[in-house]
Every structure is written in structure tokens, then in C-alpha cells.
Amino acid sequence: MTVRAVTGSGIRCAYHHSQCIEPWLMNVPGLVIVAPATPYEAKGLLTASIRNNNPVVFLEHKLLYNMKGDVPEEHYEIELFKSHIEKEGTDITIVATMAMVALAKKAVKKLESLGISAEIINPRTLFPLDKETIKVSVAKTGRLVILQEGPKVMGAGAEMGAMIAEELFEYLKAPVKRVTSLDVPVAFAPVLEDYINPSEEHLIKACQSAMNF
């Protein structure tokens, strides 16, 4: 069975409709958590999810419903349990999920103007996580910044950071950084909601701090 579920904040819907539920679900062994970031992924991953025999929760970020992108008309599948390297780089690995992928891509130009070549990884499936792609990338760059919407405490980024610390400590040139929302209920006021969520500026600062470590 595949269950489609909405997630995420940013549409000014206050506390009750702005939760990031992926960490709740990731803590239930047996569930497959799929998190597309583009229209192309939404179609390909949904097809793959329905054809998968496991119980799948297919998370759809509210902000991404308005996103435009090329989608093939014919049927196609995107492999589950496989991270996608959105952009290759050499200095720092940025792992971003769902709506944060676009934010990370947007920051690329700024980072390049600062001389930081970032590799962006979109996990696509949050659980079970394709650790190998992330590990190969972090082993190459030696630095990891996790960009995640939702509270920092016990988020998906916490799991990735712990995994890297556990399995890839030898390769790290700087501590793993997490750029996340604040650990507070999502605010209704647009100004406050934007303040709570991670921004391009936060991401760039985290990358700079990892580079300067």
C-alpha cells in the first residue's frame, strides 16, 4: 500500500498544517518513506512506490505543489532507495530533502562566488536511506552540511549526521553541520514562519563555517 501524505511548512497555514512528519514516520521500522523534490520525481517515485510491495508513505511537500518542471508523458519509474546527486562538487556535500533541494540549488551560485564547490545530494527515499551515495560524496569532500526543514532535534538530519559520525569519522575535515528549522512550533505570521525555516543565508553561513574549520 502506498499512502500519499502532505508535509512541510511555508504556506502560511500556522501550526496545525505545517508539520514536518518525516521523522515520526522514519521511526516506524518497516515503513518506506519516499520524499520527492520535483514534479519529475513525484511521478516517477509514485509509480515506483505503488509497484513496491512494502508499505510506503509518499510525502508531498505543500510548497512543491506549485513547482513547475518537465515531466515525461509516458510511464516511467525512478528507482527507490537511491539518492540522486543533483550537482557534483568537490569541497562540501549538502544533503537536502524535498523543498530544501531547490533552496540548496539556489545557493550554489553564491557558494561558487565564495569559492566553495558544493555537491548536492537529494536522498529521494528517506528510509531506508541510501547511505552509500552520501558516504562516497562525504569521503570525497570531507565536509557535510545537512539542509532539512523541520526541528533540529531528532530530525532526518540527525540520523544522517550520526551515521556519518559513526561510519565516516576518519574522512571528515570539519564537524557535520545541520541547517534546520528552529525547535519551535511553526508560526502563523509570515515573517515569523520565514524566520523559523532555514534560509539560503543560513546554508551559506554553515558552509563557510565548515570550510573555515
Binding site: T90, K110, S113, G115, E201, I204, Q208, M211
Partner: peptide
């Protein structure tokens, strides 16, 4: 524009300590 100023600890020619 997102205001980003290169930090003084990382001069332009020394941005990539790794390379």
C-alpha cells in the same frame, strides 16, 4: 540579494584549503 560577505578568515586565494 542575499547579503554574503566573504569572511576574513578565508581570503579569496585561500578558499580551498583542500585543493
Amino acid at each position: 540579494e542575499v547579503a554574503v560577505t566573504p569572511s576574513p578568515a578565508m581570503p579569496a586565494e585561500d578558499k580551498k584549503p583542500a585543493a
